[in-house]
């Protein structure tokens, strides 16, 4: 009689020639062995034939619904050409204003030599303009730039985040 392990090896297709020979001999000569082998073989083939169990129709959907929600995808929009040009123009103007301010400052530097100047009407008008408007306009422009930067760098990101959290 073969052992259970040997019989299962035959059924699994991994028995060696010697065992297979014994098996053929026993199958032909022993009714008890034949019966026992058939019992194990029936179970073996039934197990092999057993189908996969089917899940419910909404199995996958239930898992996907239980997943944590996806993080919002941030798309970095490319700046349009005109906005890039505007930025260059803006910074160019600012640099221009700065250079003019420096030049004016140099022009008005107190010098050690005292010179008696002839009153010039054009210079007078220019001086009046500088005194009355130019400084005010320069301060106003700087203030606008500061506000624009504050809006762009602080306020907008803050409100954007806040609206996403609320959403």
């Amino acid at each position: 009689m073969l052992t259970d392990e040997q019989i299962f090896d035959i059924l699994d297709g991994c028995a060696d020639a010697e065992i297979l020979q014994k098996h053929t001999h026993l199958l032909a000569g022993s009714v008890v062995y034949q019966q026992y082998f058939n019992e194990l073989a029936a179970i073996h083939f039934d197990l092999a034939d057993m189908p996969l169990e089917k899940t419910s129709a909404d199995f996958t959907a239930n898992i996907l619904a239980a997943l944590p929600s996806e993080k919002p995808v941030f798309v970095i929009a490319k700046k349009k050409k005109w906005s890039a040009k505007f930025m260059y123009g803006f910074f160019g103007t600012m640099i221009g204003v700065l250079i003019t301010t420096i030049l004016v400052a140099i022009f008005y530097l107190p010098s050690s030599e005292t010179t008696i100047e002839q009153p010039n009407q054009v210079v007078e008008v220019f001086n009046d303009f500088i005194r009355s408007y130019f400084t005010q306009i320069a301060i106003l422009l700087n203030l606008m730039v500061l506000l624009a930067l504050f809006d762009r760098k602080v306020l907008r990101p803050y409100f954007k985040q806040r609206s996403m959290r609320l959403g």
């Binding site: 996969l52 169990e53 089917k54 899940t55 199995f59 996958t60 996907l64």
Partner: peptide, 19 residues
């Protein structure tokens, strides 16, 4: 981060896992 791939993985193995 591809969730479609996750769905495909579930569909590939769900019956074996369930069985």
């Amino acid at each position: 981060g591809d969730r479609l791939a996750y769905k495909e993985l579930i569909n590939r193995h769900k019956e074996y896992a369930f069985t």
